[in-house]
């Protein structure tokens, strides 16, 4: 019995190709049934995410299984899929790397593990898994857990938005009752504001020199727009300030901020300055309770996290290798006992 993995991912195909082969949740059972019916194939799991569509199968004849998968995908998309494929033991290793986030576009991301778990649960529910793939996927989940707990592969955040959210969490804890002000409706500030909203922030105030742009962004992210002349009136109640105006000089100075901080009852203020030239005077970071991060400091943190993750890859690979060896040993013992 051989474990075959065949698929396409972000490394071999652009999104316009991947989307043609993607399997939506509602059609997953049907696809699993069709794959399972391929001659010589006994078990199947399909992992379909925005970055990959992969078929994990247990089969007596992997060549026939691969041809069957190729034919099915071609009939589905209307053109030949740029498939990669791995046999035992590389297929086992590939799944372990995928589940651990080592094969992801963002190294070490953890969302993929949930997606692999969902894919396995769907296949198990559809009755297309048995002893071999059950054991393989359970092992993959254990490997992913080991990699996550024994290494720093998930350490920190790797994008400006995620870093901002992480820092906000380290200042305020729960973000649901925090008020965010977006000063200057640029693309990056919009992304950061959206990241904060996704983490539970409910109140977002948008102020922009062009009121229509502020109103548009406020509508998009479920916030409230105010005129640029009035932002200082709202400021004392704000917990997080995202600033990205195109002003040639600082909009928030130490002189302005100090009296405002006195009205805040000791509440901290997280200032995210995304503008170039900077909107917020660096000196404001010296004010008690003010935590100022500009675009460079956020990018440096994101870059540092990515460097730490990259350094951990070797350690992760060693953990995966030992689990692959264990699984292959189990596979041989099983096949030997069947004979």
């Amino acid at each position: 019995m051989n474990i075959l993995c065949a698929g396409i991912n972000h490394q071999v195909a652009a999104v316009d190709v991947r989307e043609r082969f993607a399997v939506a949740n509602h059609e997953m059972s049907d696809v699993l049934r069709r794959i399972r019916n391929i001659d010589g194939l006994t078990e199947a799991v399909v992992v379909s995410t925005c970055n990959r569509v992969e078929f994990y199968t247990a089969s007596i004849c992997p060549e026939r299984a691969l041809t069957g998968i190729r034919t099915y995908l071609e009939s589905r998309a209307g053109f030949e899929a740029p498939l990669y494929h791995h046999d035992t033991p590389r297929s086992i290793r590939h799944l372990f790397r995928v589940a651990s986030g080592l094969d992801s576009m963002v190294l070490g991301e953890t969302e993929i593990l949930g997606q692999v778990k969902d894919a396995y649960a769907t296949a198990a529910g559809a009755g297309t898994t048995s002893r071999m793939l059950n054991r393989l996927f359970q092992s993959a989940f254990r490997v992913a857990k080991s990699v996550r707990t024994e290494t720093r592969i998930t350490r920190g955040s790797t994008s400006v938005g995620a870093v901002a959210v992480e820092l906000a969490g380290k200042i305020f804890g729960d973000l649901s009752h925090r008020r965010v002000m977006v000063l200057g409706a640029g693309d990056t500030s919009e992304r950061v504001a959206r990241s904060l909203v996704s983490r539970g922030v409910k109140t977002v105030i948008v102020s922009n020199r062009t009121f229509a742009r502020a109103a548009q962004l406020a509508e998009d992210i479920g916030g409230m727009a105010i005129h640029f002349d009035h932002w200082q009136n709202e400021f004392p109640d704000v917990d997080i300030l995202i600033s990205s105006t195109s002003a040639p000089h600082p909009v928030v100075t130490r002189e302005k901020l100090e009296p405002m901080m006195r009205q805040r009852s000791g509440r901290p203020l997280f200032v995210i300055d995304l503008a170039v030239p900077r909107d917020v005077e660096p000196e404001t970071n010296r004010i008690a309770g003010v935590f100022l991060y500009d675009i460079d400091s956020l990018q440096k943190i994101a870059q540092h996290s990515m460097t730490v993750r990259q350094r951990e890859v070797e350690h992760c690979e060693r953990i995966i290798d030992s689990h692959v060896t264990d699984f292959v040993s189990w596979l041989r013992r099983t096949q030997h006992s069947i004979r």
């Binding site: 920190g156 870093v163 380290k170 440096k300």
Partner: peptide, 12 residues
């Protein structure tokens, strides 16, 4: 403005 392991481990 440096995210260390200590910062990530300490409470808000």
């Amino acid at each position: 403005r440096k995210v260390s392991d200590l910062l990530l481990s300490l409470p808000p």
